[in-house]
Amino acid sequence: MIYDLIIIGAGPAGITASVYAARKKIDFLVISKDIGGQAALSGDVENYTGYQFITGSDLALKFQEHMNSFGIKVNMPERTRGLRLEGNNLIRIITDRDSYLSRSVIIATGKRPHRLDVEGEEAFRNKGVTYCATCDGPIFKTKRVAVIGGGNSGLDAALQMLKISPMVYIINATSQLTGDAVMIERLKQSPNVEIWNNSQVRRVYGDVFVKGIEVEREGKLYPIDVEGVFVEIGLIPNSEFADILTRNEQEEIIVDCYNKTNLEGIFAAGDVTNVPEKQIIVACGEGAKACLSASRYLSTHKF
């Protein structure tokens, strides 16, 4: 069987693309490891037009409901491993459980959290070290925690934890926090936060679970007793499988303003691309654009 379109990823970009594809009655399939992507993991969303306030998981549910209303089929959880060009302008998509042929592809696989790459991080993964404050945060109620990273996602995690944790340490590599002023202001009003600037985590230690971290500041090492370590030091694109495409130094897939990649019939949208702003609303718009471009491609090419 040959599909007209395969959408890889079901975050804001992939879901929006799928809604457009369903409305255009394109014969398509969605393949994804999850639904909602990073949006589902976001804390509070206050900048998605039409919602003055909604949680990331509720917004992701809304997206999912919208998708379900068209009866869109999502193969999930399924991870894409590779892309190959075949004859007659066809593209082969290889996943961890199958292989598919399609006339066009939209890659909307988003990003995943960056690792600290320090001793103890892997050993204590899910044993105190977490990459999803929204998911696992509540388990650390009444426990002291450290948030690694002073950008928006770090501050979001810290603000969330401040409500339920006796002490929150923010370990920030630069000389000052880089997140939004509104969030920094909210943090500064909290009595149970300690901000460590110019600081790097060197080690995570513990027994069965995390007991603390070792932090280096101005050449000196300090132990900090915490039971939770929330890693929020940025994201890397899920683009490894797309090694036939041109990517930038950050491994983001390079697209033009029509969401075209360097290969015919392959489009990309959202956080996995080099489009500058990584926002839910931007990803949705990019997903819509990518689907419209794919649709135009399908109607103007012979297969």
Binding site: S57, L61, C132, C135
Partner: peptide, 10 residues
Amino acid sequence: TTPTCPYCIM
């Protein structure tokens, strides 16, 4: 589960 975890919902 926790109420905010998307994998829990799934």
